[in-house]
Amino acid sequence: MLKYTEDHEWLKQDGDEITVGITAHASEQLGDVVFIELPEVGREVEAGEEIVVIESVKAASDITAPVAGVITAVNEDLPDAPGAVNDDPLAAWFFRIRPTDADLSGFMDEAAYNELIG
């Protein structure tokens, strides 16, 4: 079951890790994604810290860590094929994080997110 942030990120908990990507709505708003810079595996991050740079033909944007923790993996295919985010935002995850607190109850479910984006 996915959870969502107000910054248009999706979160999927799998055991003690959370996989993070951007929503289809965010992908549509950005337009064609042309560049992605991912964080280093092993990096400790704080919630709200800017850790991914994403650039499109329309704008540059930062993706923040939704929770504090350690980056355990990155999608190594994305820097060479950033357009995958436009093709399938759910498959084109950005990073996995092992959170210091795995409680995702403060994030939105799909119904609440759909209400947010109207």
Results as ranks from 00 to 15, higher is better:
98 R>Y: 00
38 L>Y: 05
81 A>E: 10
8 H>D: 07
81 A>P: 00
40 E>L: 12
112 A>K: 14
105 S>M: 03
67 V>D: 04
19 T>G: 04
73 A>G: 09
63 I>S: 01
92 A>E: 05
118 G>C: 02
72 T>L: 11
44 E>I: 10
13 Q>C: 02
12 K>N: 09
109 D>T: 01
27 S>Q: 12
74 V>P: 05
77 D>C: 00
100 T>D: 15
55 E>R: 13
84 A>M: 12
46 E>P: 00
7 D>M: 11
71 I>R: 10
84 A>H: 06
4 Y>V: 03
34 V>M: 13
86 N>A: 04
48 G>T: 01
6 E>Y: 13
96 R>P: 07
100 T>M: 07
16 D>N: 15
85 V>Q: 04
72 T>D: 08
80 D>F: 00
94 F>G: 07
58 K>V: 03
83 G>F: 03
71 I>V: 14
118 G>L: 08
6 E>M: 13
39 P>F: 08
53 V>W: 03
53 V>Y: 05
73 A>P: 06
38 L>R: 09
103 D>W: 06
27 S>C: 01
111 A>I: 00
104 L>D: 10
42 G>Y: 02
22 I>L: 10
92 A>K: 13
87 D>T: 05
16 D>G: 12
108 M>N: 03
35 F>H: 14
62 D>C: 10
50 E>S: 15
68 A>D: 04
81 A>H: 12
73 A>L: 04
100 T>I: 09
105 S>T: 12
52 V>Q: 08
28 E>D: 15
88 D>M: 04
59 A>F: 01
7 D>K: 15
87 D>V: 00
58 K>M: 09
30 L>C: 07
117 I>C: 11
61 S>F: 04
7 D>R: 15
110 E>S: 11
93 W>H: 07
70 V>P: 01
93 W>C: 06
117 I>V: 15
94 F>I: 12
26 A>G: 11
77 D>P: 00
40 E>V: 09
72 T>G: 06
97 I>M: 07
16 D>Q: 14
97 I>E: 05
58 K>G: 06
104 L>N: 10
56 S>P: 10
113 Y>F: 14
109 D>Y: 01
36 I>E: 06
118 G>Q: 13
43 R>N: 01
12 K>V: 07
21 G>T: 05
47 A>K: 14
9 E>F: 09
32 D>A: 12
88 D>E: 07
36 I>P: 09
27 S>M: 01
75 N>M: 05
63 I>V: 15
87 D>G: 08
17 E>T: 15
75 N>D: 02
13 Q>S: 08
74 V>D: 05
10 W>S: 06
101 D>M: 00
22 I>P: 08
77 D>W: 00
48 G>W: 04
57 V>L: 13
28 E>W: 02
105 S>Q: 02
91 A>N: 08
